[in-house]
């Protein structure tokens, strides 16, 4: 019996868990996106929202098994989220420096955006929260459950 077959057998197809996950998952994902996008005017923000988005993947992994969920999400999308978030965050920081300000001094975007200064700062913060923090957290937290469940060794990692 291969490793993946053994892992798959640890999950029982319970109708209660399946139904609960089917109904809950879209709402949890929407809630996570709301927390992320609405963090500027209500409690929450990129960190909390990113974790809740990743929790949707945990719910799916618990319901349908870690292996199929991990294949469905794909290692590439998680790497793009985590690394892309760092690139976006750093990029915004350096963009303000290129415009003559300090690192992450959003007000410098006044030079290229036709908006009042506090609006410009708001959009800079939103970009950092959504494109940077939420993406990094969602990518890494999703990956943690697959990495932990996979355990030590490169053999599972070599699947395309």
């Amino acid at each position: 019996m291969s490793e993946s077959e053994r892992v798959r057998q640890e999950y029982t197809q319970s109708p209660i868990i399946l139904t609960t996950a089917r109904i809950l998952a879209p709402f949890v994902l929407t809630y996570g996106l709301f927390i992320t996008f609405h963090g500027a005017d209500s409690p929450g923000g990129g960190f909390q929202g990113g974790v809740i988005i990743a929790t949707t993947v945990y719910l799916l992994a618990f319901t349908f098994g870690v292996e199929p969920t991990s294949t469905w999400v794909g290692h590439r999308s998680m790497a793009i989220l985590a690394a892309g978030g760092v690139i976006i965050f750093t990029g915004i920081g350096f963009a303000t420096m290129a415009l003559g300000g300090n690192f992450l001094e959003y007000a410098e975007f006044v030079a290229i955006l036709d908006l009042p200064e506090n609006e410009v700062v708001k959009w800079g913060m939103e970009a950092v929260e959504i494109g940077g923090i939420a993406a990094i957290i969602a990518g890494v937290v999703m990956a943690l459950v697959f990495l932990t469940a996979g355990g030590y060794g490169p053999e599972r990692g070599e699947e395309p």
Binding site: A40, D41, M125, V128
Partner: peptide, 20 residues
């Protein structure tokens, strides 16, 4: 900063480098 949640403003704008 144009936002009403002061916590987010401190985290992402005033203390942006820490959050980075």
């Amino acid at each position: 900063t144009g936002v009403t949640n002061a916590v987010t403003a401190v985290l992402a704008a005033y203390r942006g480098f820490d959050t980075f």
